[in-house]
Simulated assay, not measured.
Amino acid sequence: MQLGAEFVGTFILIFAATAGPIVNQKYNGAETLIGNAACAGLAVMIIILSTGHISGAHLNPSLTISFAALRHFPWKQVPGYILAQVSGSICASFALKGVFHPYLSGGVTLPSVSTGQAFVLEFIITFNLLFVVTAVATDTRAVGELAGIAVGATVMLNILIAGPSSGGSMNPVRTLGPAVAAGNYHLLWIYLVAPTLGALAGAGIYTLVKLQDNEVDPSRPVIRSFRRNTSMSV
């Protein structure tokens, strides 16, 4: 059940997030950068709201690995989750290839800047994403009820920042599936390594800076929320 939800959630995410750039290419900029960012951000939001209570809506191997490394998620479930995510991404990408062929190249993540710049950008935006995800998923003082909106907005913001430069992937399977379907593996390693390192750093830094229960100042108002275990992402 959890793996099925993770597969379907990743399929929807990759289909939507990749379709935006493809439509943009096919129809001469109809989507624009804001449209591309909205496709990914809105997809993340609706998937978290619909499947977060089933699988946690990871949708991203970097998130799954980071949560396991920080003991928010069992390592024994990591291979199954990653397999579901990779499978969902590849299936969505071949579905897009069938629907939009020959315009799949528009959805392939490629940098327009140097390799080093793309690597740093992907590291930073994934750091941002996992900092937010770790807050809403693991900290009882974060606004967990609005997790879908918070994470979706972070994805949209990151794409607005990095989309024209690195592609704004933040997720190895966002790049892997379209690369397989298009047969274009140019600089694929950036989008496998940088998001994973950025995710580990973002999740780790939030874990370090968050207040423990015995450190809360009772005189300071805090928005309370319920705990969401292992939830959310891109």
Rank of each mutant, 00 (worst) to 15 (best):
I149R: 00
L129R: 02
G107Y: 13
H72C: 08
N24K: 01
K26L: 13
L211V: 08
R224F: 11
A142Q: 11
S169Q: 04
I54T: 13
R227V: 13
R228M: 14
Y185H: 08
I47L: 08
I22V: 15
A137D: 05
F94C: 10
A118W: 07
I159D: 00
T134R: 07
A40F: 05
F123P: 09
A69C: 14
I48G: 04
V143L: 12
H72R: 15
N229L: 12
T18H: 03
I65R: 09
I46M: 14
V120H: 01
N184T: 06
A40T: 01
I125K: 03
S89I: 07
A16Y: 01
S219T: 15
L59S: 07
I159K: 00
N229P: 00
A95P: 00
A201T: 15
F226G: 14
G116W: 10
T140G: 08
G56R: 09
L188C: 06
E145A: 13
G106Q: 05
H58A: 13
A95K: 00
S166M: 13
I125G: 06
L157V: 14
S66T: 15
A203W: 08
S231N: 10
F67M: 15
E145I: 02
I82N: 01
V86W: 06
S62K: 04
L83H: 00
G177C: 08
A38Q: 01
F73T: 07
G167W: 04
G198H: 03
N171Q: 09
A19C: 09
H58P: 05
F67Y: 15
I149V: 15
F11Q: 03
V120Q: 03
A84R: 11
Q2M: 05
M45W: 07
G107P: 10
H58F: 05
D217I: 02
P111H: 09
L211S: 11
R220G: 00
I161W: 13
P79K: 12
V108R: 10
S62W: 01
V173Y: 03
G29A: 09
H53N: 12
M170E: 09
N36P: 00
G152C: 05
V180I: 15
A199V: 01
N24E: 14
